[in-house]
Write a protein that binds this DNA or RNA. Structure first.
Lengths: 209, 209
DNA sequence: TGTACATCAGTGAACGCGCGTTCACTGATGTAC
DNA sequence: TGTACATCAGTGAACGCGCGTTCACTGATGTAC
């Protein structure tokens, strides 16, 4: 009674039952953002948030970790979209594109700190082997591929002195990840204003001009 | 009965009650390492592991987060000790000392992945304001100070071209953190063999010779 | 067009479990006299 | 030296709670005839 203040939820029409799946993933993501810990994302809490009975989740997800996996999968897709949107078109200098994408990566983490931590924090990784390592790796590969591509273009353009763009792209990603994760964890340790650019130029061997 | 297979634990003598405090912190750290998630570190699990009754924890810790704080505080002290132990004495070139300490940092994370994630993962941060931000910051400052000192020495020695050693020390720490955290989270994404050295030299502006 | 029926989307009550926390307690140990 | 007593270290039973999960179910909706 106390939680039925919202209207009793009109059920989905036949054939549209899978809409609930989306609602579950959305609600789980919101709980994560609000509470700042995956402790809060319980089956019952998700159900409560949507306004359904807890058992209604079972037709869509076998257990809690698989909900988390869906949240992370969606978040990674979001991140990729935002990175692509932030990149100027290919006519712009590769150096500018790499900087823009790197900054967009940090911006994503800044505006979705809890989600970011969950995506790359490893804490959500399913207990049992419900998700294969390969699957996990594939999730993060798109972003890395993007950075590799841009760094290679910088080298071709002459604005990066990297002698191993694919290896250095990993180093760059790790540097971005370090900064993003630290900022997503605490707001302390501000560092100099151009900290992000130092990390990017340092690891991508970019020219400083 | 099933868990009283170990002998019934001789109680501490008078005045030595605070030994139990140490045992609690140790047990919590072990649970963390074994389970790989702070979900496993419950008051009851800790008590079970030591072989005491759950309420016996209360004279030593008011709640679970304060146990986690003690675990993290101890782990940071351990890390600091290992970094100091890994540094050659001051007669060695500063560049060698910085590399040795940076590698020791990564080695610590590699051999204590779960503990590392907990230390810097932010997930253990107490819900309420039981610990001040300043306190948290102070915990991590020792390591950073160490890096700053060494990087400054490299500049003086001429093996680093950094123009802002304290700012670049933060960048270096963040780079190390990114790699350490990633490795502590999954064993995937191996990258090139000299990945660590690329990050260190890139961010510390070290000479490559 | 009407109607019986299968299916789909979701419910509500109930279970057993481990948790944090409380309470009154016990029994060994050191200390004051 | 002996003994009464305060204190300290830790116990064991009990509570209420939210959790995951099961089960039999309900009622609307589309479909076959």
């Amino acid at each position: 009674m106390s939680e039925a203040l919202t209207q009793p939820r009109t059920r989905n029409r036949r054939g549209e039952g899978s809409r609930l799946r989306d609602e579950i993933v959305t609600a789980a993501g919101e709980l994560l953002d609000e509470a700042g810990t995956d402790h809060a994302v319980t089956l019952r809490a998700v159900a409560r948030k949507i306004g359904i009975a807890a058992p209604s989740i079972y037709p869509h997800f076998p257990d809690q970790p698989s909900i988390m996996l869906a949240v992370v999968t969606r978040a990674l897709a979001e991140l990729e979209t935002q990175l692509k949107a932030a990149a100027p078109d290919a006519s712009a200098p590769a150096r500018d594109r790499l900087l823009a994408v790197s900054r967009a990566y940090l911006a994503y983490a800044d505006s979705n700190p809890m989600r970011y931590r969950t995506m790359f924090g490893g804490a959500w990784i399913p207990e049992a082997g419900t998700v294969s390592d390969e699957e996990l790796l594939a999730l993060g590969t798109a972003t890395l591929g993007f950075l590799t591509e841009l760094l290679t273009a910088c080298v071709a353009e002459g604005t990066s002195t990297s002698r191993d763009p694919s290896g250095d792209a990993i180093a760059l990603w790790l540097g971005l990840h370090g900064l993003a994760h630290q900022r997503a964890s605490t707001r302390l340790l501000p560092g100099p204003e151009d900290l992000a650019d130092r990390i990017i130029t340092g690891l991508a061997h970019l020219s400083t001009t």
